[in-house]
Amino acid sequence: MTAPTKVAAELTPDGTERQGRKSRPKLGRGPAHEEPWAPYLFISPFFILFAIFGVFTLGYTFWVSLHDWSLLGGMDSFTGIDNYVRLLDDPRFWKATVNTFSILLLSTVPQMIMALILAEILNDRLLKGPHLFRSGLLVPNITSVVAIAIVFQSLFARQNGLINAIIQLLGFEPLNWHAGRLSSHIAIASMVNWQFTGFNTLIFLAAIQAIPLSYYEAAMIDGANRFQRFTRITVPLLRPAILFAVVLSVIGQLQLFAQPLLFGAGAGSTSGGNDNQYLTILLYLYSQAFQQPFRFGYSAAIAWTLVLMSALAAALVFGVNALFDRREDRSEREHRKAMARRREVAR
């Protein structure tokens, strides 16, 4: 191996590739250093912090969840899986779970569809003022959830809320958005949709721009119209990006907290509404742990259940993705067979 190839190998973005090479240089003799301790020193801060605030906390959460533990009383007694058993029997926990998933669906689905359409429109080299549109769409994403929740809370207010005012001006009865279960979910989901649609648009736009133009040219020669090009080329090739965005959204929305908390500003705001109609899992965890009666053990059990749910939800998304993969493989096989048949006929 000569020097130039070595340099080329150095520049490959994936670090693991290089290690498999035969001409693997001696350890501690990279282009940049001779001190063998230097790399360990440089990466140590991350691992130290993670050891204290990452590994420890997750393990400790599990340990706490096995105890009857409160902030005031301290660790009381080992109760095994009692907290988990109680949790499964807790109607409020189940209500919070249903609410969380309902808001999750109401926010993820429309958000992804809107983002795909906007990305498709933005992907036009002849578009004037692309920067203006992109930054306009990204502005909501840099705003804090607290500020967003405050503004939307006022927009959806029963009295003097702008949305109800519009409904009234159109001649309909104003809605009590906070009171209904579905209506409060829609209001909270709209905060999430508003905040993340632009961000996902930019993610999808980046992915669309990575699709080779030749695919579109080939499709155009075959007479595919714009809509067909979007559904048959753009969307299938965007699947990894969509998967990435959906998983991020699912994991993020399962931890929905600030929006329902602030949506119920005023008395009893941690209950998620008079009837817990918009109580979410994390809000329930917070209200159990950091308010009377400060049940740490119980909320630690909620935390671990939430971790499990996130993992399951992510697995479900990946499973659906794999299903699509298989369907695509099948249709490709069929397509090949059809082509082969057509060739036979032509002969």
């Binding site: 990452g54 630690a300 935390a303």
Partner: peptide
């Protein structure tokens, strides 16, 4: 991949 919000309680104890 580890959800950080979930270390809330032990982090608080710590």
């Amino acid at each position: 991949l580890v959800p950080q919000q979930l270390g809330l309680i032990p982090l608080f104890i710590l």
